[in-house]
Simulated assay, not measured.
Amino acid sequence: MPNQKVFFRVSLEAMASGVPVLTGNRASLPEVVGDAGIMINPYDVDAIADSLIRLIEDSTLRSRLRVKGLERVQLFSWDITAERTLAILNQVSQK
């Protein structure tokens, strides 16, 4: 299995660029992409083909995923990561 860290970064970069995401439903990818992309079994060739055709033919779907992706990627900013990390460290240090 390819390195999942690489794939979630690629998904985030695609969403940040306004590109609709088609990704596997494995590891952390569903958590990262959420409802801002299409998730399929990465070993199901028919599902991959069908989803690609949907993305090519359905401009409404592409538009919706583009907007959702741009919104979703904001959850993964360095500022938010730093704030959450600090909150956890503060919580732990008070125990």
Rank of each mutant, 00 (worst) to 15 (best):
L89E: 05
A14I: 03
E83P: 02
N90L: 14
K5N: 13
T60C: 08
G69L: 00
V33D: 01
V33H: 03
E57K: 15
A87L: 12
G37T: 01
V33N: 03
R72D: 01
P20T: 00
L61G: 01
A82Y: 10
W78S: 09
N25G: 14
L65T: 00
E83Q: 15
S51C: 03
D35L: 06
M39D: 08
L86C: 11
A14S: 12
G69N: 00
A27L: 07
P2Q: 05
L22T: 00
N90V: 15
V21P: 00
A87G: 15
V21A: 00
K68W: 09
T60Q: 15
I80S: 10
V92E: 08
M1R: 13
A27Q: 05
G18E: 00
A27H: 08
T60S: 13
P20G: 01
A82M: 12
L70G: 10
I40W: 02
R9C: 09
R54A: 10
M1S: 15
A87W: 08
I56S: 07
D44V: 06
T23S: 13
V45G: 07
L55V: 04
E31H: 06
L12G: 07
Q74I: 03
A16N: 06
Q91E: 15
I53A: 14
G34Q: 02
A14G: 01
D35C: 05
E57Y: 12
I48Y: 05
L61C: 02
M1H: 14
S59H: 14
S93Y: 13
L89M: 10
L75A: 06
N90W: 08
D44Q: 07
M15G: 05
R62V: 00
Y43C: 06
D46A: 14
E71T: 09
M39C: 13
A36S: 03
D35G: 11
L61A: 04
S51N: 09
D44L: 04
V32K: 00
F76M: 02
K68F: 13
G69D: 01
E71N: 09
S77C: 02
R66A: 07
F76A: 01
R66N: 10
F76L: 03
R26C: 10
I80H: 13
G34M: 02
E31F: 09
N3A: 06
N41E: 14
D58N: 11
L12M: 15
S63C: 08
Q94A: 12
I38W: 02
L22G: 00
V6A: 04
D44K: 05
S63V: 04
I48H: 03
N25S: 12
Y43D: 15
D58Q: 06
V33A: 06
G37L: 01
R84F: 10
V73P: 03
Q4I: 09
A27C: 07
Q94D: 11
R54V: 03
N41G: 05
K5F: 14
Q94C: 09
V67C: 04
T23A: 15
E13N: 07
L61Q: 02
M39P: 07
S11A: 15
S77M: 03
R26N: 14
W78F: 08
